[in-house]
Computed example of a mutant assay.
Amino acid sequence: MDSDSLIEARGLTRRYGPNLAVGDLNLTLRKGEVLGLLGPNGAGKSTSMKMLTGNLAPTSGDVLIRGISLRESPQLAKRHLGYLPEQPPVYPELTVDEYLGFCAGLHGIGKKQRAEAVADAKRDCGLTHMSSRLIGNLSKGYQQRVGLAQAIIHRPDVIVLDEPTVGLDPIQIREIRSLIAELGKNHSVILSSHILPEIQAVCGRVMIINAGRLVYDAHIDAHLGKKGLVAQFANAPAASELQFTGVQKVDIGPAGRFLLELADGADPRAELVNAAVQRGWGLLELRLETRTLEEIFVELTSGDATLREAA
C-alpha cells in the first residue's frame, strides 16, 4: 500500500448463500480523490459500502484503511472513517447540538474539544443557525446535513456517503452536491449513487459496478468527452480502408454507420472526405460525437458487460 493510498480493498466478496452480491472487488482511494461508485439498483453498491466501512463482514477479502486491516483491527481502522448511510443515523428527539455532541463523544473527542468540534462541523455543513432546533423538525435536506456533520466531526481522512441525495427535492440536491464538493477539498470521499449527473457533478473518478462486479474504473476527464467520428456511405468501404491518421478503432454500428474511435487531438475528417470523393464511396453523413457517462453506463450495465477500463 503506497503512502498516498487511504483505502485499499482487496478481493472483496460477499455471498448470501448461493447468491453473489459483490464479487472480487478491488478498490484504491488516494488523498484528495472524490470517487463515485455508480451502478443500477441492486448492483451491489450498498453492500460494497457496508463492507468498506466495516458494517458488513465480507465472505472473503479485506480492507486496509491507512494500512490498517479492517478485519484484524476494526476500531483502529474506523478512526479514519466517516460514514453516512442511505438513511441518516440521527435521533429526531435531540437538538442538532445535542446530537453532534453525542457523536463527538462516540468518536473519542475529549470534553474540552467537543464544543469546537461541533462548531466546526456545523460551520462546514451550513448548520450553525440550526443549533438548537430539534432534528425531527428539520427538513429532509437539513437532516442530511446533520448526517454529514456527524460523518466529519472527528475529521476523518475518508468520508463514505451512500446515496446522500435520495428523497431530496431539486434545490436540496443542488445544495448537498455543493457541500460534498466543498468537503472533497479537505477529505477524500467515496460517493455511492445510481444518479449519473450526481457522479459527474462532484466526482473526479468513477467506478461502475454491475451485477456485483466492477466493470469500469477511470478518471472522468480521461474518457468522457473522448471524440469519435460517425460516418455513413452510399457505397460502404471496408473497415480497413478507414484507418486514417489518429483512428484507433473502427466499428460498424446500426444502419451501416461506421464509428471511428479517435486518439486525443486527432481529426481525420478532411482526409476521410478526400478519400470518399476519390474512391466514390458516396459520403452521406459525417459528424463528430463525444462519449458521455450515460452512454458508458448503459453500455456496461445492459446485457453481459465485461469491459474494464483502467484509470
Rank of each mutant, 00 (worst) to 15 (best):
S3G: 13
S5A: 14
L12F: 05
L12Y: 05
L20K: 11
G23R: 15
D24T: 05
N26C: 07
L29A: 09
V34M: 12
L38C: 08
G39C: 02
S48R: 06
M49Y: 03
K50Y: 10
T53G: 05
T53V: 06
G54W: 11
P58D: 08
T59G: 04
L64K: 04
A77W: 01
H80M: 05
H80S: 13
P85C: 06
E86G: 13
E86I: 08
Y91T: 07
E93F: 13
T95V: 10
C103M: 11
C103I: 10
G105Y: 01
G110A: 12
V118A: 02
A121W: 01
R123A: 03
C125H: 03
G126L: 12
T128K: 00
H129V: 14
H129P: 10
M130K: 14
S131C: 03
S131A: 15
S132D: 15
L134C: 11
N137A: 13
G141H: 05
V146A: 06
A149G: 05
Q150I: 06
I153T: 05
P156A: 03
V158N: 09
P164F: 04
D169N: 09
P170A: 01
Q172W: 01
Q172F: 03
I180E: 02
G184D: 02
K185C: 06
H187I: 02
S188A: 14
L191E: 10
S192M: 02
I195S: 04
P197K: 05
C203S: 13
C203T: 13
I208R: 08
G212A: 03
R213D: 07
V215L: 03
G225T: 04
A231M: 09
A239P: 12
E241D: 15
L242A: 04
Q248I: 12
K249N: 04
D251S: 10
I252D: 02
I252Y: 02
I252K: 09
G253C: 09
G256A: 07
L259D: 13
L259A: 13
L259R: 13
L259T: 14
L260E: 04
A263H: 07
D264S: 14
A266S: 07
P268R: 00
V273S: 08
N274E: 15
W281P: 09
G282T: 11
L284S: 04
E289I: 13
R291W: 13
L293M: 15
E294N: 05
L307E: 15
E309T: 14
